[in-house]
Amino acid sequence: MKNKTLKNLFIVLVFIFLYLPIIALIAFSFNDSKLNIIFEGFTFKWYKILFTNTTLLDALKNTLIVAVTSTVISTIIGTLAAIGLYKYDFKGKNFINSLLYIPVVIPEIVLGISLLSIYTLMRLDLGLITLIISHIAFSIPYVIICVRTVISSMNWQIEEAAHDLGAGDFLTFRKIILPEIVPGIVSGATLAFTLSLDDVIISYFTTGPGSNTLPLQIYSMIKTGITPDVNALTTLIILVVMIILFTSTIVQMRKIKKGYQV
C-alpha cells in the first residue's frame, strides 16, 4: 500500500515538472504587472492587448498557414508513399527507404542548414514558401511511418476481395483501402501538424524577413523584451490543444474501458 502511494507520488511529481512552466505562463497571463515578475492582481487586459498586437497575430497566422499547408501536402505524399513502398517493387527502393529515415534521426539543425544551403544554391528567396517546403521535408517520413504501421497490419486480401467483387483499381483504392488506413493517416497528419507547430530549429534557418512564425517571433522577443500578451496567446493555444486532445482521449478511453471490461 505504501509502495503504491510512493509510485503515485512519483507520477504526480513528474507531471508537476512537465506542467510547471505552462502553469506559470498561464498564471502570469492574468497578472496585472507588465514586468511579469510578481503577481499584482487579476486582469484580462493582456488578452485585449493581444488582439491589437499585429506582429504577434501575423506570426500566429504564418504559423497556421505553414502548419496546415505542410500537413495537407505531407499527408498526401506520405500516405501514397507508404502504400506504394509497401505494394510495389522498383529499382532503388532500398535506397529511397533509407533516405526516408534520415530526417527522423539526424539532428534538426543539420536538416535546417542543408535545406538553407540548397535554397541559396537555387536562389530561392527565403519566406513562407521555403518554410512550407522545409516543414514538408521533415514531416513526410513521420507520416509514412504512421501509415505504414496500419498498412503492414492490414489484411491485404480485402483488396483482392474487392477486385473479385467487381471493383476496379481506383474504386478499390478509394472505397476499400483508403477507409481502412484512415486511422494511420489521421495519426500521421496529427503528428505532422504538431511537429510543424513545434518546430523552431528548421524554421530558424529557412525563414526570411516578414515571414516569422510564432516561435521565431517569441525567440526574438525573449531577447529584446517580452510582454505578457505572449502569455495570453500561449494560454489560448494551450486551451485549444487541451480541448481537442481531451475529446479524442475521452472517446478512446471509453473504447479501451469497454474492451477492458469484456
Binding site: 486480401q157 480485402i158 483482392e160 476481395a161 473479385d164 477507409p179 481502412e180
Partner: peptide, 11 residues
C-alpha cells in the same frame, strides 16, 4: 472468392 481469413471490409 471466399477468402481464407474472410477479407471482410471492416469499415
Amino acid at each position: 472468392t471466399i477468402f481464407q481469413n474472410f477479407a471482410l471490409f471492416n469499415h
